[in-house]
Design a binder for these strands. Structure first.
Lengths: 140, 140
DNA sequence: TCATAAGGTTACTTTTTGTAACTTACTCTA
DNA sequence: TAGAGTAAGTTACAAAAAGTAACCTTATGA
């Protein structure tokens, strides 16, 4: 990662454009792709939802609620909607009584899980803080 | 990513342990490493702080505030403390008047930026939603 | 003596998140 | 036929988090 001295004027580079989406830092923050990417499925609940759906082929609402321990109906419902809209998961409703709804990861969702695991493994090896907790996790 | 049928009992595997930290899903969620990893420096403001510190070698409080457009003193101060505690950035205060404080990325912070950029590039190629926005970003 | 400066902190307001009770439509049991 | 149960959510309300704007400190220059 090449850096630039503080007093130096910002140079417009391909790399910077990719990082911020647009060189003008006064632009609305929604225009930053990195920010977008990280905001989509990086919150605590979404991560757990995605992980459990990565482990099970498919899960119904209440099963998912059981595994994503401590989540409420409202929050689970909200997160599922966002994750579906963003293409991580798919929702399949069956016209039964009572209604049955199955959630599963999309192709993209599965590859995102791989990325999450990669990042986590990398963090476990490189992040000072996580490293300090490895005993707590019982890993390695 | 291998998945497991819904009705199947959870098998305790090395992979699952890594994913959740502990097989018992009723454990406090702080015990999930993936969750930990994603929660540390993935919020909107932290990402921008890290990116700008990745671009500039070092930045003082008010410069940083200027680039991380729209952030307040309180939030910037808070995030900087957390990021420092977690090993992403380092803080250097000079005994001058008025006081001068320089923030910069640690070694780990720099490699995290690389990871962020990698993930973003990957997302831009694979995420349906981000792909739809690529025209807006003016990338590619 | 008043303004300015850097790097924050503090009291207060707004927004977001979470909680627990309720809903709907049907079926099973007493 | 009244009542309970079931799945997948909503809704009204409370708690927590985030944001805002004024203030602090120590010193220097006008």
């Amino acid at each position: 990662m090449e850096t630039v001295a503080e007093n130096q004027k910002v140079r417009i580079t391909k790399k910077l454009e990719k990082m911020f989406g647009h060189i003008d830092y006064k632009n609305p923050p929604e225009l930053c792709p990195v920010r977008d990417v990280m905001s989509v499925a990086s919150d605590q609940w979404s991560v757990l939802i995605i992980l459990w759906l990565g482990y099970f082929e498919k899960l119904r609402f209440n099963k998912l609620k059981k595994y994503v321990y401590g989540i409420s109906n409202k929050v689970l419902s909200q997160r599922l909607k966002v994750l579906e809209a963003d293409g991580y998961i798919s929702r399949k409703a069956f016209a039964e009584v009572p209604i049955r709804v199955e959630y599963s990861l999309t192709e993209f969702g599965h590859s995102y899980v791989e990325k999450l695991l990669e990042l986590t493994e990398w963090m476990q090896l490189n992040c000072p803080k996580v490293l300090a907790n490895r005993e707590r996790y019982g890993l390695f």
